[in-house]
């Protein structure tokens, strides 16, 4: 009887385990890409058509017409929401169906586990983001002033929300708990972050409160990459985002290391 194929060194085995888990997570959403990629692109397009049609003639922000101003916000909102949805839905589904054992039984380290889920979440978020950009760019004039800022904020945004999705997926024991996390935390954070407006159009109390919302910095910095103007300096925004990611990543890694709600 033949044995299993190429057995690798410990390091190679870890790398193969990580790449396989990433590939599995990628395939999981790619096989249903009509639902996981195309649908959010359509949602963003509808937002643009409705809000753009109503407000484009009347509103400019930072000297930019409203429809143009709206597009980067919608792109980032979909990057974040889809990165979150990917890791959270994968984990809760695996926990509820019991198929989580297939990734808990093998010798995959908690670090590789974290990286694979976050990376797959980022890929889905970025694919949706590119899709939204391609679908909406025809409706307004869009400049690209600083592409590296666009890249930095989209990568860290996807990573931050991918990691948050992991926490939500690990914590939730039922789909409605995950829905509560999504509807009462993620949605308000993204919708009240300046996707549809500049926070300087808000009363001072709400302006002040917005500065405690990390998504505000993500959207504002991302928008800077397109127009070269923003409410906050992009360096400051990126520092806030990186700090938030570091904190969420540390928490997620700690939960995985302890096997919290994964290993009894």
């Amino acid at each position: 009887m033949s044995g299993p194929g190429q057995r690798a060194s410990a390091w190679e085995a870890q790398l193969t385990g990580f790449l396989t888990l990433f590939y599995k997570e990628f395939l999981r959403f790619w096989k249903v890409s009509f639902q996981t990629v195309a649908a959010p692109v359509l949602t963003a397009l509808l937002y643009l058509l409705i809000f753009g049609h109503v407000l484009d003639e009347h509103v400019t922000v930072h000297g930019v017409r409203y429809t143009s101003f709206l597009i980067p916000g919608l792109v980032m909102m979909q990057v974040l929401q889809n990165a979150f949805a990917n890791s959270s839905s994968s984990l809760i589904q695996a926990k509820i169906t019991g198929s989580i054992v297939f990734v808990l039984l093998p010798p995959i380290s908690y670090g590789a586990f974290f990286l694979a889920y976050v990376l797959a979440a980022m890929v889905r978020g970025l694919l949706v983001g590119v899709g939204v950009l391609l679908a909406t760019v025809w409706f307004a004039e869009l400049r690209v002033e600083a592409p590296l800022w666009i890249l930095a904020f989209s990568l860290f945004g996807g990573a931050l929300f991918g990691a948050l999705g992991m926490i939500a997926g690990i914590w939730s024991e039922k789909f409605d708990q995950l829905a509560a996390f999504q509807n009462f935390l993620i949605m308000p954070l993204t919708m009240l972050s300046g996707v549809f407006y500049s926070i300087y159009t808000l009363p001072s109390f709400w302006q002040g409160l917005s500065h405690y919302n990390p998504v505000f910095y993500l959207i504002d910095g991302f928008r800077y990459g397109f127009f070269g103007v923003s409410d906050m300096a992009p360096q400051y925004s990126l520092a806030v985002v990186v700090a938030c990611f570091a904190a969420v990543a540390a928490l997620t890694l700690n939960l995985l290391k302890r096997g919290w709600k994964l290993r009894a």
Partner: peptide, 18 residues
């Protein structure tokens, strides 16, 4: 194939077929 990969094994089709 995915389960093989989790255990660090690539190109495992001969054993999988068996």
């Amino acid at each position: 194939r995915i389960q093989s990969g989790y255990f660090g094994i690539r190109k495992n089709d001969d054993w999988i077929d068996e």
